[in-house]
Amino acid sequence: MIRTVVSDALLSASLLIVVLSAVGALTMRTTFGRLHYVAPVTTVAGPLFGAAAAVRTGWGITAGLEILIVVIMALSGPVLEIATGRAEAQQQGVLTPESPS
């Protein structure tokens, strides 16, 4: 019973963040603004979602796989957003392709 309540609470929080981020990205006009709204989906909603799934299924190989998926998303998300932001900055002339940062 408690496991179901905790799992549903984590799942609801995760869904709320995903939906708000998606709507926020939709309302932003610039690419940089949209990128700011993409970040919470992988870094905040992802771990919450993985925790909800792990609590729901119980500790085992399935929970390990679910945690592995959200860890991959949480680690790769910021890297991809930085790469996309860098490409946009180069396209706008803010950064040169040779620039290290």
Binding site: V18, A25, R34, L35, V38, G46, E81, T84, A87, E88
Partner: peptide, 14 residues
């Protein structure tokens, strides 16, 4: 292209 890529980045984790 890059603006569309942001949409792909949002769609993949969802």
């Amino acid at each position: 292209g890059i603006a569309r890529l942001v949409g792909l980045q949002l769609a993949s984790p969802v």
